[in-house]
């Protein structure tokens, strides 16, 4: 059948729902073994953080969609929360596998206790579902959203720096084989938008990043004897 915008939308939502079928809201045994390898076990912090993000998102989403769409809002929220759980843990596990192979490290205590990393990952998972459900829902049942929920709405909701969100996108795409082509293109557009404007806002961590790499370059120059 020819792909109409509505049919594409419905396919994407169906794909998302299929992903959720295998959703689990608890970390897998493999992932728990990584957590147990950490100097400081991150399990409690991760579970608390996911619960907090779910609560904050629920409030802000309900406020944004207006009372008229409360039911769709709560449906979307429930889908979102489960997808975030599954995506979060799945990504963690896949990413740690890659990092373990790449760095030959087994103790990821620093990374798994890094708040910016986890918040960026959760925001990325939320953005995927929002982009799938939000835009498509408005196409399919004319949901009248009072606030624009498209990117970078989630960064403001979670008080997250765009540059930190940018850092997880590529690894997220690598670790999440079930992402649809549309979703990958959407995340790539987010990347471009961050690099073109959002990352250059005055309080962005990008400036520290540039400063530190310049300092590292400066040190590298000094360490070379001039005669070479």
């Amino acid at each position: 059948l020819p792909q109409t915008p509505v049919r594409t939308a419905m396919n994407t939502i169906q794909q998302l729902m299929m992903n959720l079928n295998s959703a689990s809201d608890k970390p897998s045994d493999n992932l728990i073994s990584y957590f147990n390898n950490c100097t400081v076990n991150p399990t409690e912090g991760i579970l608390d953080r996911v619960e907090n993000v779910g609560r904050i998102f629920k409030e802000r989403f309900a406020k944004a969609v207006g009372q008229g769409c409360a039911e769709i809002g709560s449906q979307a929220t429930n889908i979102l929360i489960y997808c975030v759980f599954e995506s979060n843990y799945n990504f963690n596990f896949m990413n740690l596998l890659q990092e373990e192979e790449r760095l030959s490290v087994h103790n990821f205590s620093k990374l798994l206790n890094n708040n910016d990393f986890h918040m960026s990952l959760l925001a990325c998972a939320v953005e995927v579902v929002m982009a799938t459900y939000g835009r498509n829902a408005s196409q399919t049942d004319g949901m009248n959203i009072e606030t624009d929920l498209s990117f970078p709405w989630i960064l403001n909701v979670l008080d997250l720096k765009a540059f930190d969100f940018y850092k997880v996108i590529e690894s997220f795409i690598k670790a999440e084989p079930s992402l649809t082509r549309e979703m990958i293109k959407h995340l790539e557009r987010c990347e471009h938008r961050i690099m073109e404007s959002l990352a250059w806002q005055s309080d962005s961590p990008l400036f520290d990043h540039i400063k530190q790499s310049k300092e590292r370059e400066g040190q590298a120059d000094q360490s070379e004897p001039t005669c070479t």
Partner: peptide, 21 residues
């Protein structure tokens, strides 16, 4: 995914990006 432009270089990953290496 073929049509995504991976930009991380060799030796760069999520651990380095978050200064957790």
């Amino acid at each position: 995914p073929q049509d995504y432009h991976f930009g991380l270089e060799e030796g760069e990953g999520i651990s380095e990006l978050f200064d957790c290496d």
